[in-house]
């Protein structure tokens, strides 16, 4: 066992995409937004990085809202499936 390393071990994907890299800890990120969020949360961000963080957080909030709509839909579906499954289970003979 080893202590958590900062940044964690990373390998870039094989398709040669250039990553967004954190200027403080050199950790590569798949998207620019991931980097902006990481810098804003984990490092002492400059004013420009702070603004990029706020923008990334707003954009993420919209995505999170859509994700949560899907989650609520899935919960509803699971609930309905449980009810139907329960009705079938209890109405089986024997």
């Amino acid at each position: 066992m080893s202590l958590q390393s900062h940044p964690p071990e990373t390998t870039l994907s094989d398709d040669g995409t250039t990553a967004a890299v954190c200027p403080y800890c050199d950790r590569p990120f798949v998207t620019e937004r991931q980097r902006a969020l990481h810098v804003g949360e984990r490092h002492n961000a400059t004013e420009a990085e702070r603004r990029a963080y706020e923008a990334a957080r707003d954009a993420e909030s919209d995505e999170l809202f859509r994700l949560h709509l899907k989650v609520i839909f899935a919960v509803g579906l699971l609930y309905a499936a449980s009810i139907v499954g329960g009705v079938v289970a209890f109405s089986l003979p024997g």
Binding site: P8, E9, S13, A19
Partner: peptide
């Protein structure tokens, strides 16, 4: 995720 963090990590 997506992420570049290794599978091992």
């Amino acid at each position: 995720a997506p992420t570049y963090v290794t599978t091992r990590y």
